[in-house]
Amino acid sequence: MKHYISLAFFIVVVMGLPMIVRNPYYVGTLVFVGIYSLITISLSLLLGYAGQISLGHAAFYGIGAYTSGLLATRCHLSPWIGLVCAAVVAGVLAYSIGRPVLKLRGHYLAMATLGFGEIVYIFLNSTVELTGGPSGFGQIPRFAVGAFSFKNDTRFYYLVWVTVIILLVLVLNVINSRIGRALRSIHGSETAANTMGVNTASYKMQVFVFSAAVSSIAGAYYAHYVTFVSPATFDANTSILLVTMVIIGGMSNVWGAILGALLLGTLPEYLRTFGDYDILIYGAIMLIIMMFAPEGLAGIAAAVKRKFEGTLVPRAAA
């Protein structure tokens, strides 16, 4: 119940923002935050709940962008069909690599997913005839419904953030269901979960495929928003950035995933005024958050909340 109040509040804020913020630059920045949020929410399900790290999600992001972008420019298919195809392609690919990859643990899983991401990156770079190679390709059409085109930033903002809200509703439901409990048990101890009769392999796979499909949808949004894609956007740095967003935001909290995307998605914009020093400030902010708030931004929020409640209702044991 509580989640629905939070959600309703969130919806009002998100939907109302463009009425106050009209400058395309701010709206555009928030569009990117929305695209990142799609990935980080699904990643937090994988990382924070199922406890499986992936340093290869930029690959699914890229596959989505390229699948949808290519179908729209080469085959003149509607971007909406491209979007669905993108999700299916990424989901199938995730399913086919998931079986051996998800057997690995910890750093080995990190390396395997990183390696997978690099292979996809090399593929995008090398198949020049198909993908345009390292130079990428442009003139990707925008989303449209009939004559209504999502051509300006505000329209696209609504498209992306409505998707984020749908995903949030879905994920919040999953977390508070049998599946959510099973996932948390995997994070706690996979062996114990297995012993208790939880089919851990199957749950891990489901979440992996789901997050791949969602990341792919995010990629399709990116392609039809920027209208130009090149492989450089989907390299290992992006994978690491996405995981960083999830952890900085607070791993085991979907709201944290949005916070992380918001912080790291807008931070470069704040740091514009600092010129070259931006790299130092960026690093310092990350370091300070992780040193002093290992639970991430959501952890800070929770601590503030505890303190706030603590003043009203004194607790017996702190």
């Binding site: 509580k2 109040i5 939070s6 509040f9 969130f10 804020v13 909290n253 709201w255 949005i258 916070l259 959501a298 929020a301 929770a302 503030v304 909340k305 706030f308």
Partner: peptide, 8 residues
């Protein structure tokens, strides 16, 4: 709820 407030 508070989390969302803070988020906002």
């Amino acid at each position: 709820m508070k989390k969302v407030l803070i988020l906002t």
